[in-house]
Design a protein around this nucleic acid. Structure first.
Lengths: 201, 201
DNA sequence: TGTACATCAGTGAACGCGCGTTCACTGATGTAC
DNA sequence: TGTACATCAGTGAACGCGCGTTCACTGATGTAC
């Protein structure tokens, strides 16, 4: 029994609405305080229709991570155009920072759950984030003298500074994002030069 | 009408129990999902007795920040023994890291709410944390050439790296805390030397 | 082409349950005189 | 010392409400032949 693509599109549309509406509500009240009825109400479906898409809120949350957060972070990990080295790492971080401003609700969710009370969410997000730092590590390895500091630790520090900058952008509004990007770039420059990374512009 | 100190102690004991029990439950389910009845149950008082201490959960949360989180962070900001400069900053960060392991539930609460969905909590914690970075800034200012980078940005970077290390200690258990402390110290060393801070051991 | 059947997203009614809050009360303790 | 009164943390009963979940049903669409 094959399925009509139009019907499948409808189903996907509602499903996507549920996910986005959950992000919006989670920004206001926190994911853990959300109920299936509240989400369904905001998505304009009957509470019972929720079950056609997810077994419960926990499954929906998992899909937020796998279907939305994961892809965004995978994008962060994709190689920046241009040469490798310190310049690449800074470019990656700045690209991530600006993508945070483009989808603030998703970014807030990632930041909140990465530090939040649900261990499975923390673990899942940590593993998605480790993809980003691994990618940075790869770019760094070529630009670091072998005797110098561990590229892994350098990449970890950069990711941590980058996430903190994302949180600041969300809190202080996009009008400050240029200044925050500049601050992030400077902080990364310190880390890289302190760790002996060459090729920094 | 003066009040018997014994009675006052009793009252304080229950109040403290409510606060600690809330921290424990918030570690498991998140602060926002907690209800007055759940907290009262865990504290072994009737739900109606809750009102003798707090008007609602939000007031209790505010007291968690003012009465527990604030004092801990103020402690972090108190000057480390010994000379000023980069060494002091590292010592402050490492002291904070170890105090995180001593009260993991409070630390988890701080980390979660600093990035969480309640704007007033985020703001309150940000201002308590700024006390820490201001203290570090003071220690740095003396050890930095005037022409060099801004001490404020350096202190911010150190605080961010320190909080991330605290989160890692909580997630990976105390047995890894020595390695994490060493990593944090190295990352701080990079930042300080990259930013031109002198006096680093 | 027409007919009978299968699939499945969406629904409204109904359920039992735990929630936050109110109320009037208890009983231990402190104060006045 | 004794007596009358005030304070106040803790309580159990009761309330109305929204929650998650179940159930049987609808109706649009696709498939078989």
């Amino acid at each position: 029994v094959r399925i009509n693509p139009e019907r499948k599109e409808d189903r996907e549309r509602v499903r996507h609405t549920l996910l986005r509406v959950t992000l919006t509500l989670a920004n206001a009240h926190g994911f853990l305080s959300l109920g299936l009825r509240e989400v369904s109400r905001a998505a304009d479906i009957a509470p019972t229709s929720f079950y056609r898409h997810f077994a419960d809120m926990e499954e929906l949350g998992r899909e937020l991570i796998e279907g939305l957060a994961g892809p965004l972070l995978a994008q962060w990990a994709s190689p920046a155009s241009g040469s490798s080295g310190g310049g690449t790492v800074t470019a990656m971080a700045l690209r991530a920072l600006s993508s945070a401003a483009e989808d603030p609700e998703l970014m807030r969710f990632i930041l909140a759950e990465e530090r939040g009370a649900i261990p499975t969410f923390r673990t899942a997000l940590a593993s998605k984030l480790s993809v980003v730092s691994t990618a940075m590590e790869g770019a760094l390895a070529e630009a670091m003298p072998k005797s110098a500091s561990s590229p892994e630790r350098v990449a970890d520090a950069v990711v941590v500074l980058m996430l903190a900058a994302c949180a600041d952008v969300l809190d202080h509004g996009p009008e400050r994002s240029a200044a925050l990007a500049e601050r992030l770039a400077e902080q990364i420059r310190w880390v890289l030069s302190g760790a002996g990374v060459k090729g920094e512009p």
